[in-house]
Amino acid sequence: MILDRFRLPDRVAVVTGAGRGIGAATAVALAEAGADVVLAARTESQLAEVAERVTATGRRAHVVPTDLSDPDAAASLAGTAVEVFGRLDVVVNNVGGTLPRPFLETTPEFLAEAFEFNVTTAHALTRAAVPAMLSSGSGAVVNISSIMGRVSGRGFLAYGTAKAALAHYTRLAAADLAPRVRVNAIAVGSVATSALDLVLGNEELRTRMESATPLRTIGAAEDVAAAVLFLAAPAGGYLTGKVLEVDGGLQAPNLDLGLPDLEGTPE
């Protein structure tokens, strides 16, 4: 049956940023497909709640409370998966994000931090995971990028640059690791997670964002989780180096931060 291609029986996955939102939904989806899951994020109480949802599917969960802004901490998750579950098949580099800032407030240090949090940590975990995946026979990596990595909007210079780098990292890593390890990414649009709490709690802002989205709605974390499962499972077995756009059809940002033009006296 075609649905069997969406199964991950007795596989092992690592999901970063798994305490809530897209990471939590992804961890549960992978478990429902048959995988045991290493859950990593900063807040242990949130991870414990997600672990309960994983075990409710009949699969095992291992919680790792850690600061994933540290590339060494991210890399260590590969060894943890092998130590606890005996193998590693899937890595979901979900952790990331950077707050918007006006251009002149985006210091080189802020830009570097955005790159490290969104790209360097993903590389650290992926690099550490590859030997374990090769031992398992094959592997799949899914990186969570963003629509802001391909469209332009004021205030998103650091975030968008980092996510664009992650998207191209995906293509380059896929070439390096083919054919044994597949590497794909998802360019996520506006999804109802804590990052959008301000919008979700303001009817005017939410309506404006939905109206500017071709599908006229804000996405759910499960929309992204379903795409992750597709890319991680045999269903996506003939894809590598691809960036799947799960964004409601966006071709431009659907929320203007209202940052003004720069002021100054022309010489």
Score class of each variant (00 low, 15 high):
residue 1 M to T: 11
residue 5 R to C: 11
residue 5 R to Q: 14
residue 7 R to S: 13
residue 10 D to I: 01
residue 14 V to F: 15
residue 20 R to K: 10
residue 21 G to N: 10
residue 22 I to W: 02
residue 24 A to N: 06
residue 27 A to E: 08
residue 27 A to H: 04
residue 30 L to D: 07
residue 32 E to G: 12
residue 35 A to K: 07
residue 37 V to F: 07
residue 38 V to Y: 15
residue 39 L to Y: 02
residue 43 T to E: 01
residue 43 T to C: 03
residue 45 S to Q: 12
residue 45 S to L: 05
residue 46 Q to N: 09
residue 46 Q to P: 01
residue 48 A to P: 02
residue 50 V to C: 01
residue 52 E to Y: 04
residue 52 E to Q: 12
residue 55 T to D: 07
residue 55 T to N: 14
residue 59 R to I: 06
residue 59 R to G: 04
residue 61 A to I: 02
residue 62 H to C: 12
residue 63 V to N: 04
residue 65 P to L: 04
residue 68 L to A: 01
residue 69 S to G: 13
residue 69 S to F: 14
residue 69 S to C: 06
residue 72 D to W: 06
residue 78 A to M: 06
residue 79 G to E: 01
residue 79 G to K: 12
residue 81 A to F: 01
residue 83 E to L: 12
residue 88 L to C: 05
residue 91 V to T: 03
residue 93 N to F: 03
residue 97 G to D: 14
residue 105 E to V: 09
residue 105 E to R: 14
residue 106 T to E: 05
residue 106 T to I: 00
residue 107 T to I: 09
residue 108 P to G: 11
residue 108 P to R: 14
residue 110 F to Y: 13
residue 111 L to H: 13
residue 112 A to H: 01
residue 113 E to R: 14
residue 120 T to N: 12
residue 123 H to N: 15
residue 128 A to W: 09
residue 129 A to N: 12
residue 134 L to C: 04
residue 138 S to K: 10
residue 141 V to C: 03
residue 141 V to T: 09
residue 143 N to W: 00
residue 145 S to R: 05
residue 148 M to H: 09
residue 149 G to N: 08
residue 149 G to W: 00
residue 149 G to Q: 11
residue 152 S to H: 15
residue 153 G to Y: 05
residue 155 G to L: 12
residue 156 F to Y: 09
residue 158 A to K: 09
residue 160 G to K: 03
residue 161 T to A: 15
residue 162 A to G: 07
residue 162 A to H: 10
residue 163 K to T: 06
residue 164 A to N: 08
residue 166 L to S: 11
residue 166 L to E: 12
residue 169 Y to L: 15
residue 171 R to F: 13
residue 173 A to N: 08
residue 176 D to L: 13
residue 180 R to V: 03
residue 182 R to S: 01
residue 184 N to P: 11
residue 184 N to Q: 08
residue 184 N to D: 13
residue 185 A to D: 04
residue 187 A to E: 15
residue 188 V to R: 02
residue 188 V to E: 04
residue 189 G to K: 06
residue 189 G to L: 00
residue 190 S to A: 12
residue 191 V to H: 05
residue 193 T to V: 10
residue 194 S to V: 00
residue 200 L to V: 06
residue 204 E to Y: 11
residue 205 L to T: 05
residue 206 R to F: 00
residue 208 R to W: 11
residue 208 R to C: 15
residue 217 T to C: 09
residue 220 A to Y: 06
residue 221 A to R: 00
residue 222 E to W: 06
residue 223 D to A: 07
residue 225 A to H: 06
residue 225 A to I: 07
residue 226 A to M: 11
residue 229 L to M: 01
residue 233 A to C: 05
residue 233 A to P: 03
residue 241 G to S: 12
residue 251 Q to T: 12
residue 252 A to I: 07
residue 252 A to Y: 06
residue 252 A to F: 10
residue 253 P to K: 00
residue 255 L to Q: 14
residue 257 L to D: 15
residue 257 L to C: 10
residue 263 E to D: 13
residue 267 E to V: 14
